[in-house]
Design a protein around this nucleic acid. Structure first.
Lengths: 143, 143
DNA sequence: AATTTGACTTATAGTAACTCTAATGTAGTA
DNA sequence: TACTACATTAGAGTTACTATAAGTCAAATT
C-alpha cells in the first residue's frame, strides 16, 4: 500500500521585505516589485505604511514565477498560469499542459546549450594550445 | 609523436542568401541582417544589385557569433571579440580570456537550468498524479 | 524636537536585442 | 509588361528588465 505524505500548509505571516525576497531569490528588488505590480504574486500584503511584506506562502508563489521565468516563459504567459491557479481545480488540465510544454521546451534548450558548450570547449582547447605554442602559425583568425 | 592534422581553409565563394543562412542557422532573416548591420560578420559581399551573399567562410564567422550569442554574450561584447579577431595574433590572450570566461558562465547557467528542470519535473509529476486521481483534494493552488 | 539617514513608494524614461512594418527596388516568370 | 517573390533600408514596436527622479515615512542621531 502506498503511503501518502500529508504536507503542511505554508505560513502566511508577513515576514520578508522586498529586499529580503530579492536576496533569497537572487533577483533585484526592482524585479520583485515589477513581478508584484504585474500581479504575478497574488496575495502580497502591505504594512500600514504601504510597505510590501511577503510570507512564506507568497515566497512559494514567487518561486513558481521564478522557475517559469528562468525557463523563459513570458511574463504574460506566467500571468495566465497564475490566474489559472487562482481559479481552482477545474483548471488543472490547462495548467498541466503549460507545465508539460515548459518542461519539453527546457529539455530542448538544454540540449542546444550543451551543443554550444561543445563548441566553446573546442575554442577553449584551441586557445589553450595557442597560448602554449606562441610561435604557431594561425590562419583562422575567427576562431 | 603527435600527428598534426592540417585543416583546409574555408571556401570564400559567395553562395548563400540571407534566407538560406537564416535556415541553416535556425534564426530569422531579420536577425541575419541585424548581425551584419552591426558588423558582426566582417566580410559579407553583395551582388551588383546590392544583395548579401554569404560564403562558407562568412558562415563560419556567423557560427562563432551565434555560439557566443546563444550563450548570452551581449552584441557589443561579441563585436569586441570579432574586432579582436580581426587584429590578428597579438590579441590572442584577450580573446582567450573572453572564451574562457564565457565557458565558465555557460557552466553556471547550465547548472541553474538543471536546478529549474528538477523543479519543473516535480510539478510535472504532481500534475500527472492530479490528472489520474481526479477526486484529489488540493490545498496548494500555486503548484 | 529637529534633522538626517535610509529604505520604501510610484511614475516614468532608458536599454538590449530583437521583431515587425512600410516603402521601395530588382530579378525572373507568364 | 505586369505579376510574383524576393531583396533592400529606415524606423517603429515589444519584452523584460533596469535605472532615475521625486517623494513618503519611520527610525536613529544630534
Amino acid at each position: 500500500m502506498k503511503k501518502i505524505k500529508k504536507e503542511e500548509p505554508l505560513d502566511k505571516t508577513p515576514k520578508y521585505t522586498v529586499k529580503e525576497v530579492a536576496k533569497i531569490m537572487s533577483v533585484s528588488a526592482h524585479t520583485v516589485r515589477y513581478y508584484d505590480n504585474e500581479g504575478l504574486i497574488p496575495f502580497v500584503t502591505r504594512t500600514q505604511s504601504n510597505i510590501r511584506m511577503f510570507s512564506d506562502y507568497d515566497l512559494s508563489w514567487f518561486k513558481t514565477v521564478h522557475c517559469l521565468r528562468a525557463t523563459d516563459l513570458s511574463i504574460s504567459d506566467i500571468k495566465t498560469y497564475i490566474n489559472l491557479c487562482l481559479k481552482g481545480n477545474k483548471t488543472i488540465p490547462q495548467r498541466a499542459k503549460i507545465i508539460f510544454n515548459q518542461e519539453k521546451k527546457l529539455q530542448e534548450h538544454l540540449k542546444e546549450l550543451q551543443k554550444q558548450m561543445e563548441i566553446l570547449q573546442k575554442k577553449k582547447k584551441y586557445y589553450k594550445n595557442l597560448l602554449k605554442n606562441k610561435t604557431n602559425d594561425i590562419w583562422n583568425p575567427y576562431k
